[in-house]
Design a protein around this nucleic acid. Structure first.
Lengths: 342, 342
DNA sequence: ATGAAAGCGCTAACAC
DNA sequence: GTGTTAGCGCTTTCAT
């Protein structure tokens, strides 16, 4: 193993020496302090530029006890929904002069725990997080509290953690989706749910069940399946359902991504959509419009959730204390070809 | 405006006081230093846990001059390709005990400049970056050099910046795509390119042109279009092409995302693919398989590029100096229905 | 095996 | 308007 080099960075004392002034003057000049003469400011800025000076966040945040950094933990950066959320956060953050650092748990608790450690160690001013599908205990989030780092959770949240939440009405999402399918005449509706230990998925399931109950439709027990929505799980579910005595005539799936796979597999099995089955996805994605048939969806407003999450964390930081606000963002039923009335 | 609170975090001196020992002992115990007795280590670790202690990266990196952080700058986190790259980086980073912080330029130079500042200020141990579509001057990346932060660039790179590069052979990508279309009998091939001030796009265009030349096919000047591949640009291009005297019978587009839009617009204009035109995208995405017709593509191995990029940055960090390695990753022609031989 | 002290780069009183 | 000094939380000689 080779040596870790010491990195010689340019510091304010380099600037100070070159100009033969005090480091505090340099610091003030760089921070545009009003008591520093324009002449000095100019000199300092010029030398800073010349030397390629960049502030050390480590040093300055050590004394200021604030990093102007917001940490974001999402399961997958590549998913359209999380990408939207990130964009919403970044848009607002920029407005307010905050920088955003993004971490990915990859739907993996171990990784999520790592990320909480990094963000803690970095002493970000605030955290915005969405739980991984695997996350059961939320102990690792408690460290933020101890370090007085406020945290807002969105989408897949835990009420065991203090702080604002930004969510949709997941019960409503499940209800509206089921209701729509019932209205177009479907009677044997299956629900491919994410892990129901996650509250969001549990709530959707609830809404789904209640819609059936209200319309006095049967809930075939095997038609309510909690899984991790992987391609493998989807294939297994489909095999079971479509080979059973009672086939579903509609499927609600709890992620946009799974809808695409579902449709592709079903088509390859020889089924026609929406003639044989209707499909609707909880969560929307651009590909829902590209696939044949286009896929109906419940839209979850990612960007808006991102913006709201930043607003919440910003308030916490400014007030120096967490609220327990729960902000519920509106969903939207998007009817496309996969659930057209026959 | 309200007050910025001081955040009282738990420090090693809290632990030291509680145990009535020196902070240096605590530090050693926490770092598992061999000279510390097991008894002391245990005591320290217990109290650390009890108090919810988390190291301050700011403080420790200040003295160690190393953060164990890798900064990544990508244009869009939501794009499948960049998400793959990020996953590749993270996989390797985890292996080696590095943490990754992800920044998004949003294809925007101003934002990109901001990100370089953040990463500089954070004194990450290394940077992995892909230029935004807008980036012309790369002056803002020079600061990394001055701070002795190594940087590897991938995909859209600039050779004005020192350091390793991880790329594909873009010339080949353009060539192979064109060649494939020629082989299936296409003669009026259009190329919707990204901004050709970006070397990758320029190279692809070169490969495209050379393939035509080699087969003595005409290049209609209006069929080579450099734009930012937005939906608006695509519609404009299509309007121009399809209303012209000479219509293209094939289109190569320089991003996966644009292929989906292209296809959708073309279909809505009443054209049949691949009967009227063939399409191939430079870069692949899962949706290329969902859309009808499925879209041929040149696959660019994102995850592999990510892994290689981390390997390169890791070497730089360990050796304490940048190489100028250029690592070229293999591409792959994926023939799907949009370019099937008629 | 542990402690004392210096110092990383910066900011914030407090002087003048 | 600028300098002096202390100190943020940590690691690292150098002692013992």
């Amino acid at each position: 193993m080779t040596n870790k080099q010491k990195k010689e960075s340019v510091t304010i004392s380099d600037i100070a020496k070159k100009l033969n002034i005090a480091t505090s003057t340099v610091s003030r000049a760089l921070n545009n302090n009003e008591k520093i003469s324009e002449a000095t400011k100019k000199k300092v800025q010029d030398v800073a530029l010349e030397l390629g000076y960049e502030i050390s966040l480590a040093a300055s945040s050590l004394v200021k006890k604030s990093t102007n950094l917001i940490g974001v933990i999402v399961p997958k950066v590549g998913s359209e929904f999380y990408a939207d959320v990130i964009n919403g956060i970044q848009e607002k953050a920029q407005e307010k002069g905050y920088k955003v650092i993004i971490c990915q748990s990859d739907e993996n608790v171990k990784q999520e725990i790592e990320m909480t450690k990094v963000l803690n160690a970095t002493r970000v001013d605030g955290v915005i997080a969405c739980l991984s599908m695997e996350t059961k205990s939320v102990e690792h989030f408690k460290a933020f509290e101890k370090n007085n780092i406020p945290i807002v959770m969105f989408d897949r949240v835990s009420y065991d953690i203090n702080g604002p939440k930004v969510v949709i009405d997941d019960y409503e999402a499940g209800y509206v989706a089921a209701n729509h399918l019932i209205k177009i005449g479907r009677e044997n509706i299956a629900h491919l749910s994410g892990n129901t230990q996650v509250k969001a998925f549990e709530d959707r399931t609830h809404g789904f069940k209640d819609a059936l109950k209200e319309h006095k439709l049967p809930l075939h027990p095997q038609f309510l399946l909690s899984c991790d929505l992987s391609e493998k799980d989807i294939r297994t579910a489909l095999k079971m359902w479509m080979n059973g005595a009672q086939k579903p005539d509609a499927i609600i799936t709890s992620s946009a991504q799974s809808g695409l796979i579902l449709t592709t597999v079903l088509k390859s099995m020889g089924y026609n959509i929406p003639e044989d089955l209707s499909i609707i996805t909880l969560g929307n994605t651009a590909s829902n419009e590209f696939i044949t048939p286009t896929l109906s969806a419940i839209n979850i407003p990612g960007k808006e959730i991102g913006r709201a999450s930043f607003d919440e964390i910003f308030t916490c930081i400014k007030e120096g204390k967490s609220s327990n606000n729960i902000s519920v963002k509106p969903i939207q039923l998007l009817i496309r070809n996969s659930s057209f009335k026959a």
